[in-house]
Nucleic acid binder design. Sequence first.
DNA 1: AGACTGCTTAGACAAAGTCTAGAAATGTCA
DNA 2: TGACATTTCTAGACTTTGTCTAAGCAGTCT
Lengths: 147, 147
Amino acid sequence: MGLSADATPPRLHSAQAITLLREHEITPTPQRVAIARILLARAQHLSADQLLEAVNRSEPRVSKATVYNTLGLFLRKGLVRAVVVDPAKVFYDSNTRFHHHFYDIKSGTLTDIEETEIGMPALPNLPNGSIVESVEIIVRLRSRFTQ
Amino acid sequence: MGLSADATPPRLHSAQAITLLREHEITPTPQRVAIARILLARAQHLSADQLLEAVNRSEPRVSKATVYNTLGLFLRKGLVRAVVVDPAKVFYDSNTRFHHHFYDIKSGTLTDIEETEIGMPALPNLPNGSIVESVEIIVRLRSRFTQ
DNA sequence: AGACTGCTTAGACAAAGTCTAGAAATGTCA
DNA sequence: TGACATTTCTAGACTTTGTCTAAGCAGTCT
Ligand SMILES: [Mn+2]
Ligand SMILES: [Mn+2]
Ligand SMILES: [Zn+2]
Ligand SMILES: [Zn+2]
């Protein structure tokens, strides 16, 4: 047991991925299916670059532009959500339930906090004419024994 | 009354800025004072680029590298804090009280939510051996009449 | 003066993400 | 089937934020 990345990360069967895409009114092209099979296999947080790498370990090859296009499409269709917590890159989150995050500063790892695990505070009055798009709580953590 | 940026944003007097820096054990060089006079004049959220522009509207000229170096130093010394909400750039926040933010998606504007205006969320158990570095609530807003 | 320190600087560099223009695939219909 | 339109994919140029390096500059000490 080491620290290396998953050699064979879980994947959806193509049929499952295609069904998911169709349910969200997305034409299931081979590239989109390949991306969905990995990203949507379980609740996880992947950067565009991590996803590009993972997808291109097997066929079909997918370009960087298509990965970004597809992530944008999945976002608009509600299949994933974006987590902005690291100034250097966006994480794409396949957990679409309303939830929050621990962020381990040192390792750069996100961990979900489900809605039931946290007491949601009441919001103050909103600026006039605005509506809430999302509420995110981010708890940054650092290791107790690291200075 | 227009939408243009402040022609003459408020500035601290040099003596005030120097005192602030000394209180935080920062050697008050001319460049650091120039940056502090603008950034610390009031509670605000500026990107590195906005600050670079504002500082260089008058003497002394400050290089990009020095702006980033100084922001890093101010962060470590607790004079400002970083707000990560826009994947494209970090905002530096001169309000160092514990507080949260509204983020207007369209305009890219941050507005403070003071601690007294919102309840502190009850946190779940932390992963073992970790301590809380910060807790941030970000409420993303969009205009009611914009599609 | 010479040596040492801390600070600033230009500009090269890195990395994430966007954009463009053309190629390829897919669909429609005569 | 072939002609044409529409959608999707792609390489690679480009933009932007931010980091790094190596040299210069300004004090301080002896
Ligand atoms: Mn970016
Ligand atoms: Mn960046
Ligand atoms: Zn999540
Ligand atoms: Zn603030």
